[in-house]
Simulated scan of single mutants.
Amino acid sequence: MTSLGSVIQKHGFSYHCYTDDTQLYFSFQPDDPTVAACISACLSEISSWMNDHHLQLNLTKTELLVIPANPLLHHNFSIQLGSSTITPSRTARNLGVVMDHQLSFINHIATMTRSCRFALYNIRKIRPFLSEQAPQLLVQSLVLSRLDYCNALLAGLPACTVKPLQLIQNAAARVVFNEPKKAHVTPLLIRLHWLPVAARIKFKKFALCK
Results as ranks from 00 to 15, higher is better:
Gln140Thr: 07
Thr87Glu: 10
Leu154Thr: 03
Phe177Ser: 07
Arg146Cys: 06
Val139Asp: 02
Gln102Ser: 12
Ala171Leu: 08
Ser44Ile: 00
Ala207Asp: 08
Leu167Ala: 09
Ala152Thr: 10
Ala172His: 02
Glu63Tyr: 12
Leu59Asn: 11
Gly5Lys: 10
Ser141Asn: 14
Ser83Tyr: 02
Ser48Val: 03
Phe118Ser: 14
Met1Pro: 14
Ala134Ser: 14
Leu137Pro: 06
Ile106Trp: 01
Ser78His: 08
His193Leu: 02
Ser6Trp: 05
Phe203Gln: 15
Gly5Phe: 04
Ala37Arg: 13
Ser14Asn: 14
Pro158Phe: 05
Pro158Met: 07
Gln140Phe: 00
Pro164Trp: 05
Ser3Val: 00
Glu179Val: 00
Thr91Ser: 08
His184Thr: 09
Val175Lys: 01
Leu130Met: 09
Ser40Pro: 12
Trp49Leu: 06
Asn170Ser: 14
Leu55Arg: 11
Leu144Tyr: 07
Leu72Tyr: 04
Thr34Asn: 15
Val185Trp: 07
Phe28Val: 03
Arg117Trp: 02
Leu24His: 08
Asn94Pro: 07
Pro68Arg: 10
Met99Pro: 04
Glu63Pro: 02
Phe105Met: 15
Leu167Asp: 01
Arg191Lys: 15
Ser6Gln: 12
Asn170Thr: 02
Ala36Ile: 01
Ala159Pro: 06
His75Leu: 02
Leu65Cys: 06
Lys163Asn: 13
Arg124Met: 01
Asn151Tyr: 00
Asp20Pro: 13
Gly82Arg: 11
Leu103Tyr: 08
Ile190Lys: 15
Ala92His: 13
His16Val: 07
Leu144Thr: 05
Arg114Cys: 04
Leu138Ile: 04
Cys209Glu: 13
Tyr18Lys: 12
Glu132Gln: 12
Ile123Leu: 06
Thr111Val: 01
Thr60Lys: 14
Gln9Val: 00
Ala155Gly: 08
Pro158Val: 00
Ile86Phe: 02
Leu188Ile: 04
Phe129Pro: 08
Gln9Ile: 01
Lys61Val: 06
Ser115Ala: 10
Cys116Phe: 10
Leu103Arg: 14
